[in-house]
Design a protein around this nucleic acid. Structure first.
Lengths: 103, 103
DNA sequence: TCGATAGTTCAAGATAGCCGAACTATTAAA
DNA sequence: TTTAATAGTTCGGCTATCTTGAACTATCGA
């Protein structure tokens, strides 16, 4: 039973946040979560072809960056964007990044 | 005689721009350039102790991300933030990142 | 209980980043 | 005009990070 750790946003440095967003796959995942409230891991996947382990690692990094919160629900892991927390810590950053994201 | 290549901003993907900013040293360098108009390489350095080769590589990446322009002036390389170009390509991004930068 | 589902963790190979050492180019001094 | 100093770049090797298949854990449905 994986017990996920979620950092306090004040402990997340800007570099880590930017690094988490500086990847096309993760950015797509964040955009999906921004649009859909709560998604399972496979639901948040940027594409079908991505390996499970890679997906899991991306989500782990997004967690470490304070971008998402993951809770277990049955055998699924439910991911949710920590938008309020993140916006308080880095005002405007997520909005700007999502707005500049390629279509 | 190094002949620097500067990308057109429309060819710079968001991931690369974020990646370039997702490093404390580079971010410090960008902040310095944002405050000082034109700086030599060592002038833009984030600290005294950083090796020249590392510094040079950071500047190369900032160039590739469309963040700076480098021209030769004598034996110095003069770096300038491509703020207008970058802002046109990624509106608001640089402002937000600089505003969220740790003091 | 058995199988399928959903995801994590591990480890190994691939990739990227850091930095010392050698090199280039320019300026200044002798 | 050498000679030396300055300002960086480039190269190569080491390290660290990323990716991914394989093995594992846990839960649900039949």
């Amino acid at each position: 039973m994986p017990r996920f750790t979620h950092p306090r946003l004040e402990d997340v440095p800007l570099d880590l946040a930017l690094h988490a967003l500086a990847d096309p796959n993760r950015l797509t995942m964040v955009a999906r979560l921004a649009a859909t409230e709560r998604l399972s891991c496979t639901g948040a996947a940027p594409c079908e072809s991505i390996p499970k382990s890679t997906l899991s690692n991306h989500l782990k990094l997004l967690r470490a960056a304070g971008l998402i919160e993951t809770t277990q629900a049955g055998r699924e892991m439910i991911n949710r964007l920590r938008r309020d927390d993140f916006d308080r810590r880095f005002p405007g950053l997520l909005d700007v990044v999502l707005a500049n994201r390629p279509a």
